[in-house]
Design a protein around this nucleic acid. Structure first.
Length: 593
DNA sequence: GCCGTTTTCGGCCCGACTGTTTTCAGTCG
């Protein structure tokens, strides 16, 4: 591992310019902080970056409308820098800052436990030029002896470097969610534990998490924390206090446990769920109302500095004290939810109970493991009304894609299975490849016989952005293309989205009545939440599909798709598979005829 | 650097834990 080690920031939307500008502002904030500049100026850049990341629209479009100033946290200076970036592709101020800042200082900020002060101290005190240098200095015990640094700090820096080398960034939710479930189950069995919940970004269903946060109430906090730090999954104990324990679990995931009193449970759950930006807004509202909000409760300030608790045992009580309805965790990002709550206009987010079927599923006719009959049984047992069988088409040889003849045979077999099944229906479909020229890999007279046709790109990822966009738009224009699956092709932590103009694709989907998928596989989550919100806002219907290949292991992945939909503010009305079978199929009648 | 239903200046969220101190700075969330 070299000094290029980075904590990957999660990909939050497909609007590349938004990401680039947010990242530039974060880097400016880091450098100003290293230079010891006004901390409020630093957080102004961070806040601006956050606002831009949360934007559900392409920032270039916002700029065209002259509406940059309407983005919270964007004033005169930041607006000018955004415009400069959109025009020239760079920000001169950032280039200047980079010129006067050694790269290694920014690299060191990624090490857990090393902040700006320590980074500068290490650089100036030891002439550290790279993370490798730093590691060597730690091994040779040259770090201890610097002001305020002794053996323990040196050891922690070394461990931080090693952690960074192994962990390489954030953990996909598909790994973190099951692990958190295990920990909650073991701690939940303790007599001393009263209430327990996952908090943090995991509770908000972010696609990757930096750590796992767990909150409990207990009569014997220290005992619970000792139990936590001695769980079988513990690799290393980072902290063990009276109210907080912190470990690194196997798989290099950090897990934090907080113990609070019951009267503070709601306030603590709110506080540790975040997001930080959402919490800051809540605290500002508290201050405006002459109150104080912290992880222990909401307090009314009285005469001579007295404070009286007015809420805190439940999250609902905390929001109510601030004059707000309970805001669902998934949308607590300071991305408009507080304003919506004030207007009484929060969306009624889709829930698991709303989902009536799975709209992306493979059988052993292509690369799945289960036969059609088995899929039907699994679907019925899962409580679904339908599952769309969507095996690959012939050009995807590696997945045993179906030839036209085989697909016709499968259609007949599905009819036979459906005749034998009550209260459940297999829908006839296909996941048809979008060929490089945008045509579909299946004859129209066969597509006509299917209930629902999924179209997707599985090859030739490295086309130019405008060619890829034309390819996918052309596919949407086919009257037989009903659902566009995993539209950006990204694999979280593995493969970036291919170059594609999602704003143009969304426009085309809206125009042609094509639905777009949220692929619920936890390493895809494609569409992501921000783009799904933009698509639904443009009038595009969203389908949630698990892309299941092994029913027992993967059908449950629907929860990640629902979490992503909720993060994207989607209601049951936005989502195709909340519909009963007849209404689902009739949706596409106006497109296909 | 942003922001304003007390403000265009003077604020800007708040607390736990660690490691180093002997009352606190740095980091984190």
């Amino acid at each position: 591992m070299t000094n290029s080690a980075r904590i990957n920031r999660p990909r939050r939307s497909c609007f590349m310019k938004n990401k680039e500008i947010a990242s530039a502002f974060n880097e400016i904030a880091d450098i100003l902080e290293l230079q010891g500049k006004n901390p409020f100026r630093v957080s102004a850049y961070r806040r601006g970056a956050q606002s831009i990341e949360n934007l559900s629209r392409d920032i270039a479009a916002v700029a065209d409308e002259g509406a940059l100033g309407d983005i919270p946290g964007i004033g005169k200076d930041l607006r000018a820098k955004i415009e400069e970036y959109l025009e020239t592709g760079a920000i001169a101020f950032l280039a200047e800052l980079r010129g006067e800042t050694p790269r290694v200082l920014l690299d060191m900020l990624r090490i857990p436990g090393v902040g700006p002060k320590t980074a500068v101290l290490l650089y100036e005190g030891l002439g550290i030029e790279s993370i490798d240098d730093l590691k060597k200095a730690a091994v040779e015990h040259r770090i201890q002896g610097l002001p305020k640094i002794k053996a323990k700090t040196e050891e922690n820096i070394l461990k931080g470097v090693e952690f960074l080398e192994r962990a390489q960034g954030r953990t996909p939710i598909g790994h973190a969610y099951p692990l958190a479930g295990e920990i909650v189950a073991s701690l939940g069995r303790l007599r001393e534990v009263k209430m327990i919940s996952v908090a943090g970004s995991l509770r908000r269903w972010r696609e990757t998490v930096g750590d796992i946060d767990i909150l409990v109430t207990s009569t014997a906090p220290e005992k619970v924390i000792r139990r936590f730090t001695s769980l079988g999954i513990v690799q290393r104990v980072l902290a063990e206090g009276k109210t907080k324990g912190s470990i690194v679990a196997s798989g290099d995931i950090q897990v934090d446990l907080r113990v609070v009193e019951e009267k503070s449970y709601g306030a603590a759950l709110n506080y540790f769920t975040g997001s930080k930006e959402h919490n800051i807004r809540l605290r500002e509202i508290a201050i405006q109302k002459g109150m104080k909000l912290n992880e222990y409760g909401v307090f009314k300030k009285g005469a001579r500095g007295t404070e009286r608790r007015i809420a805190g045992s439940t999250e609902g009580s905390v929001y109510k004290a601030l004059g707000l309805p309970l805001i669902p965790p998934e949308i607590r990002e300071d991305a408009g939810e507080i304003e919506a709550a004030r207007r009484g206009d929060l969306p009624a987010l889709v829930t698991r109970d709303d989902i009536r079927g799975d709209l992306h599923f493979h059988s052993d006719w292509s690369d799945g493991t289960a036969g059609l009959e088995e899929v039907a049984h699994a679907g019925k047992a899962f409580g679904y009304r339908y599952i769309l069988i969507s095996d690959h088409s012939q050009s995807l040889k590696i997945a045993h894609g179906l030839s036209p003849g085989r697909l016709l045979e499968q259609i007949e077999e599905i009819d036979r299975v459906n005749e034998r099944t009550r209260g459940f229906r297999l829908l006839k479909g296909s996941e048809v490849d979008i060929l490089p020229d945008g045509t579909l890999d299946m004859d129209e007279d066969i597509l006509r016989r299917l209930d629902i046709v999924i179209v997707a790109v599985h090859s030739n990822f490295k086309m130019k952005r405008d060619e890829m966009t034309r390819r996918v738009v052309r596919a949407c224009e086919s009257p037989y293309a009903h659902i566009l699956a995993h539209p950006t092709g990204r694999l979280i932590g593995t493969r970036d989205a291919y170059g594609i103009d999602m704003e143009a694709v969304i426009t085309a989907a809206a125009r042609t009545g094509t639905a777009i998928e949220i692929n619920a596989h936890p390493l895809r989550l494609d569409l992501d939440a921000a783009t799904a919100r933009a698509a639904a806002g443009a009038g595009v219907m969203i389908s949630i599909g698990t892309d299941t290949h092994k029913p027992a292991a993967e059908m449950e992945n629907i929860v990640y798709g629902i979490g992503t939909a909720r993060r994207g503010w989607l209601t049951p009305g936005n989502i195709l598979n909340t519909r009963p079978p007849a209404k689902l199929l009739s949706y596409f009648h106006k497109k296909t005829g």
